[in-house]
Amino acid sequence: MSVIRDKITELLSMKSYPEKLFYDGNLELLKRTKISIVGSRKPTQYSRTQIQKLSSLLSKNGVCIVSGGAMGVDALSHSGAGASNTIAVLPCGIDVRYPAINKNLLEDIAKDGLLLSQFDAGFKATPWSFVVRNELVVALGDALVVGEADIDSGTMRSVEFALKMKKEIFVLPQRLGESEGTNKLLKDGKAKAIYDMDEFVAMFSTTLKGKNSSIVEDDFLLYCSKNPTYEEAMKKYQNRVFEAELNGEIKVVNGVVIRLT
Rank of each mutant, 00 (worst) to 15 (best):
M1L: 15
V3P: 08
R5L: 09
K7H: 10
M14P: 06
M14F: 04
K15C: 11
S16T: 09
S16N: 11
S16Q: 08
Y17M: 13
E19C: 15
N26I: 08
L27V: 11
L27M: 04
E28S: 15
E28M: 11
R32H: 13
T33A: 04
K34H: 14
S36T: 04
V38D: 00
S40W: 01
Y46I: 06
S47N: 03
T49H: 09
Q52D: 07
L54A: 03
L57N: 08
L58G: 06
S59H: 00
K60I: 05
K60F: 08
K60V: 05
N61R: 12
N61M: 02
V63K: 01
V63M: 08
C64R: 04
I65Y: 03
V66G: 14
S67F: 02
S67N: 07
S67D: 05
G68N: 04
G68L: 06
A70R: 15
A75R: 15
L76I: 05
G82Q: 01
N85P: 05
N85Y: 08
I87Y: 00
I87P: 00
A88H: 02
C92H: 02
G93A: 03
I94L: 04
V96Q: 07
V96M: 04
Y98L: 05
Y98R: 06
Y98N: 03
P99Q: 07
A100K: 07
N102Q: 14
N104V: 08
L105K: 00
L106H: 06
L106K: 03
D108V: 15
A110H: 03
D112N: 14
G113A: 14
G113P: 02
L114T: 02
L115S: 01
L115P: 00
S117L: 02
S117P: 07
A121M: 14
F123A: 02
K124D: 00
A125I: 09
A125G: 09
W128L: 07
W128D: 09
E135I: 06
L140P: 06
L140G: 03
G141R: 10
G141F: 11
D142F: 13
L144T: 06
V145T: 10
A149V: 11
D150Y: 13
S153A: 06
S153F: 12
R157M: 10
K164E: 09
K167I: 12
K167P: 10
L172T: 00
E178T: 15
E178N: 15
E180N: 14
G181L: 10
T182G: 06
N183V: 04
K184T: 08
K184N: 07
G189S: 13
K192I: 12
A193Y: 02
I194M: 10
Y195C: 10
D196S: 08
E199G: 00
F200R: 07
V201N: 04
M203L: 11
L208A: 01
K209Q: 07
K209S: 03
I215G: 00
L222F: 12
L222C: 13
L222I: 15
K226S: 14
N227L: 03
T229M: 12
A233I: 05
A233D: 01
M234A: 04
K235S: 12
Q238R: 12
N239K: 11
N239R: 09
R240P: 04
F242L: 13
E243A: 13
E245I: 14
E245G: 05
L246H: 07
E249D: 14
V252C: 04
I258P: 09
L260H: 11
